[in-house]
Write a protein that binds this DNA or RNA. Structure first.
Lengths: 185, 185
DNA sequence: GTGAACATGTAAACAGTTACATGATTCT
DNA sequence: AGAATCATGTAACTGTTTACATGTTCAC
């Protein structure tokens, strides 16, 4: 159950509404965890009941908007959770399943999807690099928090780069097999 | 719902029992998809009901063992599914959540977990490389199916390598922050 | 004032994990 | 005969996704 802890971390950085949290997931946070707004609201309600977080009082009474902040209980929970071990995330990659299925079944129809993914990975890389340029430019952070954020971002960049390299090797080689097999299938 | 299609692909390669499928997941298949035996049995029963797969008749009547094979309906399902688009798999990485939480909360307690993960990734890399050496040695496969299997395996190797490189950069730098902060606390 | 973006929620369906239980086969 | 491994299953729970519904705020 990491979602609660992602949210706690995010709220520690800045008290926020559920909506803001969801949006932040689409940015920096999103490349190692993501969640839909429904999941987030449910989790926030749960944590509110357990007393891990609370809503800010100052809110206008006529608004539905609720800004959450972390309570002491939430901090303790997060600190306890950090100590726990977890196994490396296991891949669950639809594209690899499709690729292997297509290999078995034939049809030579996987190329457009590979090319589409190449574009998507390039876009994501561009986004990450833009954040990197903006936040870390050329100076090495002396602050431990910033250093960790930078390293996490760089891991994201590395992963996108590797995907791109792999796809750029895969696509032309599959095309060769297609040619070798003749034009008509 | 990819699990069904992973199983279909696996069964196309070779008719198998649920147990055999589960075991195969721990090997080559497992590095881009994995499932517990309970998931597999449930899915197999579901596909059996839908007529995508069937059991071999030849089985001894007094055994509980059931060997499944793909039916025409299953092939059609798989072929249809391959055509569909899917978004790149999104990461869900506990370790990154912990790292970012620890950055925010302090405590300098994440290093042992990073070192543990480094060992795990090295072990996994060793396993993949052993499979690679065994199956593909030094000769480039001319067969399209084998070529795809090789490329998928190499993607796994690349990913483990990148993790190792990243962790080997991260760990000493975090140790520096620890030292800079003094021995106590 | 109306449309876009902000903001929150319920309900149902689907997928994945954990705990528990049991039978069959093979090896010693 | 007993242990290890092979093999399958039920039940309960937890987590995730999708569809649907609705109210609020801000800019034009």
């Amino acid at each position: 159950m990491s979602l609660a802890h992602v949210l706690l971390t995010s709220l520690l950085e800045k008290p926020s509404t559920g909506f803001e949290l969801a949006r932040r997931f689409d940015r920096s946070m999103g490349f190692f965890w993501n969640a839909t707004h429904q999941q987030i609201y449910r989790e926030l309600n749960g944590m509110l009941k357990k007393g891990w977080i609370s809503t800010l009082e100052e809110q206008a009474a006529n608004s539905r908007k609720k800004t959450y902040q972390v309570e002491q209980l939430g901090r303790i929970q997060l600190a306890t959770w950090i100590e726990q071990q977890s196994e490396p995330a296991q891949l669950r990659d639809d594209l690899m399943v499709r690729l292997r299925a297509e290999a078995q079944l034939g049809g030579n129809n996987i190329l457009p999807e590979l090319e589409r993914h190449l574009v998507l990975h390039k876009e994501k890389l561009g986004l990450y690099q833009a954040i990197h340029d903006k936040d870390f430019k050329n100076n090495e952070p002396t602050n431990r928090v910033l250093f960790i954020h930078k390293m996490i971002l760089e891991l994201g960049i590395i992963k996108e780069n590797e995907w791109i390299k792999w796809l750029e090797q895969m696509i032309p080689q599959l095309k060769k097999f297609e040619e070798a097999n003749g034009t008509g299938e």
